[in-house]
Amino acid sequence: MTLHAASIAPNRVLADLIPATKVNAYARDAVLVAAGAGLTGLAAQVVIPIPAISPVPFALSTLTVLLLGAALGPARAVASMTLYLIAGVAGMPWFAEGNSGVVGLVSFGYILGYIAAAGLVGALAKRGGDRTIGRTIGVMVAGSAVIYAFGVPYLMWVADMGVVDGMTKGAAVFIVTDVIKVAIAAALLPSAWALVRRFQG
């Protein structure tokens, strides 16, 4: 399949533009899944601890998850985040701040949310949700909301917090950084598709 044919066909994401035959498509996807997990692990080490405000640090991994969801599509993105979670639980020290496992990890709920968010963002991107700035903003906001839907209740349970405390320390403190992350995604993804269209021409 040529670049032109792959890019203009419906239900495509950026990863589908990587040339592959029926024979090596599985190898391509396996590499993308593993690379996505590894990239998430690297991004999770870019953190700013804020113990005086929240037990959950600012981390670059959430932006990475959302971008990967859009770029890889739902199946590959879910597989990638599942690999990230399983390897981390098994002992790979690539959760935020070099952590691994589950015990004592207050941010584990957010990691569970990565899987669901990657799937949602990937599904929306496959329907063209990452090709304009406006749509990308909506997709990124939806993906972020899914991560919080998993992360905040888990934080409240593990840290024995009330609803107000959990929402404040588990979500509200990240509003500013979330806006920045959404803006970055809204700049990167539509720009990538614009380049694809330019090469088509």
Rank of each mutant, 00 (worst) to 15 (best):
L60P: 00
L60K: 00
L60A: 15
L60S: 08
L60Y: 02
S61M: 11
T62Y: 09
T62Q: 12
T62C: 03
T64S: 13
T64N: 09
V65P: 02
V65L: 05
L66I: 12
L66Y: 07
L67Y: 05
G69I: 05
G69F: 06
A70F: 03
A71I: 15
A71R: 01
L72G: 07
P74Y: 10
P74E: 11
A75N: 10
R76N: 03
R76S: 00
V78E: 02
A79L: 12
M81F: 15
M81A: 05
T82F: 07
Y84G: 04
Y84S: 09
L85F: 15
L85I: 14
I86V: 15
A87V: 14
A87S: 14
G88H: 04
V89F: 10
V89P: 05
V89S: 09
A90F: 11
A90T: 04
A90Y: 09
A90H: 03
G91A: 11
M92G: 00
M92E: 14
W94I: 12
F95W: 11
A96Q: 13
G98Y: 08
N99H: 14
S100C: 13
S100K: 12
V102C: 08
V102I: 15
V103T: 15
L105I: 14
L105G: 00
S107V: 13
G109E: 06
G109W: 01
I111F: 04
L112R: 01
Y114E: 06
Y114I: 10
I115N: 06
A116S: 12
A117W: 05
A117F: 04
A117M: 07
A118P: 10
G119I: 07
A123Y: 14
L124I: 11
K126Y: 03
K126G: 13
R127K: 15
R127A: 15
G128D: 06
G128T: 08
G129T: 09
D130M: 08
D130N: 06
D130G: 01
R131L: 07
T132W: 07
I133Q: 02
G134V: 11
R135G: 11
